[in-house]
Nucleic acid binder design. Structure first.
Lengths: 358, 358
DNA sequence: CTGTTAGCGCGTTCAA
DNA sequence: TTGAACGCGCTAACAG
């Protein structure tokens, strides 16, 4: 009991496969009676076109692949959400391939995409352009989002991690903090390194010393790193975490240690994942409109696919935007009545909207 | 400048395409010199097999499709993570198709999968078995996770939503709460309805009246629903939310209204998404090991695909497990030093591990 | 051990 | 307006 093919339909409708194809694709002239008979047969046989076969014959899969390092945390899930809705809008399917911790794995994943997809979005913070190019046999449209240096000559979208980090640190300085530590992302990760560099630059410019502990972008690593900072007896009054998840981990560690945030120590994260607005104190962070970025990435890739000219080699840069919440001491608890269980904070409920708009 | 095909390789290595295929797939006998020449040609031409063509000829795509209602919230992203790692382990790719709000859309999505995948995992809380069967031309292995009644005759995994809801409400009763409201998921959603029914049953059994407000599983809807409950002047002391995201929304609404949780009102959620352990107060909830469930779902589907017998028609049931945290008043703030900014809670730090183990 | 050939299911010329 | 035949790139029989 196998699935019906276009042949079965043709046979039952007593027409040729070509006619069936014409009817189904609305291409070419078809007489009304023929058309009717075909549709009847399709209905009777529950026929559904075999997209694999169609792809082979049209060299069009209507699918795009997404190469990711891993799927932990909210960043990537938000991104996928954005990609997915855009894909649907443009009539594309999405095939995801994650857990590529090094360049080799990512490279293998890219190769395995040949014949499955019409284009690729690559987020591999460990892979440079050269490495990537080598993985790319056959001219498959690729959009790079590997957060590295502007990989010249390839269409790409990068986040201004350096600039964002500088802004974050400046914000902490603006609130009067001077002993500011940084929890960095994993070494070798291009995004992590840019943010670290931005932190370093901003601190140097202010004539301040730096304190850096390495994490791996997970909440647990942020927790550990913060615990270490406390144990080291550092008298900190500010923390810039390499991403929100680590910042959240640090927040909890501070809380466990009896440190009040933002009174004792102010915290700023990076990414603005949905959870950032939901923790207490809510997290000041550098906002990347993640899902939105995903949408535009997919849209751009579709452009690359459909206008198969190599014209678009621009490097869009996404500039993160400072979102001030409670953790940096500038937003108040949005309580309306007595907030007996919370320490008073500086200002009124001016940031209520911001806290909610996640 | 097109990508090289197996023919190009054969030509360059002066062998037949069959030999190339044999070398690349390690199937059949190949003489060493032949083998070497083929590999050289592959290298020189940067040849990568076209998996679409391979699929057509082997009727094997090594891809599984996942049909989802949407991608909001952490539940689905956690699930996808579990599915993805398991897929990788088993040598499969994952193609996701989401945003299917009604049965028709889901049905169309399922059809569009023919020829792309070897099997399907369907999460469509709106689609019953009959509807699904109609969408399935050709016998494609399908694993159902639509949370509905045990769809007899089809392999499926269901969460014991009813039992979980009863447990959740019982827990609230155990802590001495009696005026317990429920924020339900969207009408028509099978999971939401089971949880609602469980709530109703547990309340009835305790001889208590019910209060239900409808939400849609989003954090915002939970916030709105809680606000409505407050505005209605209900003197509640307990809340069972249909899922964690709505519970988190409610938590914030209570906070804004000056209600203390758990002192004034205890809250229990459902799912145990990662965020549940990170909000404050941390959220008591019914734990579903989401990623783990995804892993086993994929594993089971692979079993269905590879042993193509219709033997497996069981309905695995996942029993949610109560995780007690701060929001139901039984777990303490895990502060070590002075916790001046927090109201005292009932017990010591006995639940510290549970709060952390997310 | 190796090459030839027939499909896999579909779109698409090109004649009729 | 229709149908026969070829090709997409590859695997798998079957000869040699």
């Amino acid at each position: 009991m196998k699935a019906a093919t276009i042949r079965d339909v043709a046979l039952r409708a007593t027409v040729s496969v070509a006619s069936v194809s014409r009817v189904l694709n609305g291409a070419g002239p078809v007489a009304e009676p023929t058309r009717r008979r075909v549709l009847e047969a399709v209905e009777a046989l529950q026929y559904v076109p075999h997209s694999g076969a169609r792809s082979l014959s049209t060299s069009k899969t209507n699918t795009v692949g997404v190469i990711l390092p891993d799927l932990f945390g909210e960043f990537f899930s938000e991104l996928i959400r954005g990609l997915d809705v855009a894909a649907r809008e443009h009539g594309y399917h999405l095939i995801v391939s994650s857990s590529h911790d090094d360049a080799d794995e990512a490279s293998a994943a890219i190769r395995s995409m040949r014949g499955r997809v019409d284009g690729l979005i690559v987020l591999s913070p460990h892979m440079d352009a050269a490495n990537l190019a080598a993985s790319l046999a056959g001219r498959l449209p690729v959009l790079l989002m590997n957060g590295g240096a502007t990989d010249a000559g390839r269409p790409s979208i990068v986040v201004d991690n350096h600039g964002g980090a500088v802004t974050a640190v400046k914000h902490l300085l603006d609130t009067g903090r001077t002993r500011i530590a940084h929890i960095a992302g994993p070494a070798g990760n291009l995004e992590a390194e840019s943010r670290l560099a931005g932190y370093g630059e901003a601190m140097a410019r202010a004539g301040l010393e730096t304190t850096v502990v390495e994490g791996d972008f997970t909440q647990a690593s942020g927790h550990r790193a913060a615990a270490r900072l406390i144990a080291d007896g550092q008298s900190l009054d500010g923390l810039f975490a390499g991403n929100d998840m680590m910042a959240v981990g640090a927040l909890l560690a501070f809380q466990e240690a009896g440190l009040r945030c933002p009174e004792d120590i102010a915290v700023v994260g990076f990414d603005d994942v949905p959870i950032a607005g939901l923790v207490r104190p809510s997290l000041t962070t550098m906002r990347i409109r993640i899902a939105e970025t995903g949408r535009s990435a997919l849209k751009r890739l579709v452009g690359l696919i459909e206008a198969n000219t190599g014209a678009d080699v621009a490097c869009d840069v996404v500039r993160p935007e400072l979102v001030i919440r409670q953790s940096s001491g500038q937003a108040a608890t949005p309580d309306r009545r007595a907030a007996a269980n919370r320490a008073p904070t500086a200002t009124g409920s001016s940031q209520l909207g911001e806290v909610r708009d996640v």
